[in-house]
Amino acid sequence: MRMEKIATREAYGKALVKLGEKNQDVVVLDADLSKSTKTEEFAKAFPERFINVGIAEQNMMGTAAGLAASGKIPFVSSFAMFATGRAFEQIRNTVAYPELNVKIAASHAGISVGEDGASHQSVEDISIIRSIPNMTVIVPSDAVETEAAVMAAAEIKGPVYIRMGRMAVPTVNGEDYRFQWGKGVVFREGTDVLLVGTGLMVDVCLRAAEGLQQEGISAGVLNIHTIKPIDGETIIRMAKATGAVVTAEEHSIIGGLGSAVAEVLCESYPVPMKRVGINDAFGESGKPMELLSKFGLDPQSVMAAAKDVIRRKKQL
């Protein structure tokens, strides 16, 4: 099923154009990053509905709120760092509190931003945005899922955060893929360990599962694209089937997918668990793939974590 590599931001740019053709109420805001976030595709197709706010993310969120309050469906783009970091309080107070129909589609999340380094590598955004009431949080795993999520986001009322990356990533979902809000996607069932991934780590989990299989370990793989509201039902079902869980995300282990899964399991079905992610650190400059290895976001690290939780399960 794995085909060409496409960055989720590329898929976003194309999806926006489709959406713009379909829905006249869709408007797009960007803060001087349209070439990077790929909103320039929409800007070319619908210049009158593209609003560049300049380098002013706080005003961008507030403007989007006003547009939404007047019936528009604004898609707001910047890098994840600036969208959720610089404009946190604008999102919290002027978008989420009034439950306005603003879609925050942020690119350049995580360390796979690469050479730009720590100042531009958001490893906290899921944590920040997940804590805000009324927010839905989506982290697509590939181009297929990104397009589906973007189209779906326009259909639901209320604020949505979509987290995307800069780097081209393998396509893990088939053409028949159907996006379901808040519903995890089961790639493999397993009996020894469950690997829960999000974003580009879904592909890493799939490769880890293949590696584990060669060693005689049966790993389930679950893609949690909707971090909030989280699909507790599927997580618990698969945790019961395996008795050991590893989460994998290109994000801090504090507050992201790992924390969300831990919250579900601790309250309902505690099993040995390990979070693979950025270990409470800032990123740095480098080639994306080298950084992913350096920070332990590769199949080897997920496999090691899987063996660790299986060992702990056996000690119970």
Binding site: I51, N59, T63, G66, S70, T94
Partner: peptide, 8 residues
């Protein structure tokens, strides 16, 4: 900012 959005 919100007023800007409404006016726009």
């Amino acid at each position: 900012s919100a007023a800007n959005g409404m006016a726009l």
